[in-house]
């Protein structure tokens, strides 16, 4: 089979199963049916049953993976549309995301120590709250394994997309700024996707939260994490 044909098939099959997963989730909105859980599970089943190579599937679906880049660029649209709203809330945004990134790193570190994780696993876990491409950069900076970090970022996204609405209800988060920042900080793009279901304002705050979280984690990755690791591991 030619590469073009493989990509055509992979693109269509992935899209059809994704659409079907979304329909299922809309009808039965249970955590287990989350599209980012159900759709990959079905695809993994197909790959296993048909004895396909995971790398062949990765190639066949590369068009969709590629779209993550342009999709990130497209986040400029909600930011542009709601620039005055963001400017008005800039202090809330900066403070909340500073708190969020610190909690993300320190809670991962503390829980890792409690569960006796160490080495590569621990370090690769630290930047998992942020969007994949930047998480990979931070992981490299602090000496983690980028591929492992990617897996953790995905798991964080799926988890955050599922528990986000529960956190919002439990913490009685009423304002769009709190809802959006919590989702964008906790679960990057997947959280932002959820935030857009709440409303356009929530989506915008989530987008900016996601970007700020990535930026601040980059800074912590260079300054704070190395010294934290030194204190706790040595």
């Amino acid at each position: 089979m030619t590469t073009a044909l493989i990509i055509l098939i992979g693109t269509i099959v992935t899209y059809v199963i994704y659409r079907a997963s979304k329909v299922v989730y809309k009808k039965w909105p249970m955590p287990f049916f989350h599209p980012l859980l159900l759709c990959p599970l079905i695809l993994i089943g197909i790959i296993q049953l048909a004895h396909l190579q995971p790398s062949d599937y990765a190639l066949s679906s590369s068009l969709w993976t590629h779209m993550l880049g342009p999709a990130t660029v497209a986040f400029a649209i909600p930011i542009y549309k709601h620039a005055p709203l963001l400017r008005k809330n800039i202090m809330i945004i900066l403070t909340s995301i500073a708190a969020g990134t610190l909690v993300a790193i320190s809670s991962s570190l503390l829980l890792s120590l409690v569960m006796r994780f160490n080495g590569d696993l621990l370090i690769s876990l630290l930047p998992r709250s942020i969007t994949t491409p930047i998480a990979i950069e931070v992981s490299k900076t602090i000496g983690g394994l980028p591929t492992l970090t990617t897996v953790f970022v995905i798991v964080t996204g799926v988890t955050g997309g599922i528990i986000g609405p529960y956190v919002i209800r439990l913490m009685a988060l009423k304002s769009p700024v709190a809802r959006g920042l919590a989702l964008g900080m906790g679960a990057h793009g997947v959280g932002t996707n959820k935030a857009m279901e709440y409303g356009e304002q929530e989506g915008t705050f989530s987008t900016i939260g996601m970007i700020m979280a990535a930026g601040m984690t980059l800074i912590w990755g260079g300054l704070l994490i190395p010294s934290l690791l030194q204190i706790t591991i040595l």
Partner: peptide, 18 residues
């Protein structure tokens, strides 16, 4: 692009197979 964002994460999620 923003509405179908989850779709673009699907191949990476399947990558857990590795």
């Amino acid at each position: 692009l923003l509405a179908e964002l989850l779709l673009f994460f699907v191949p990476s999620a399947v990558g857990i197979l590795n």
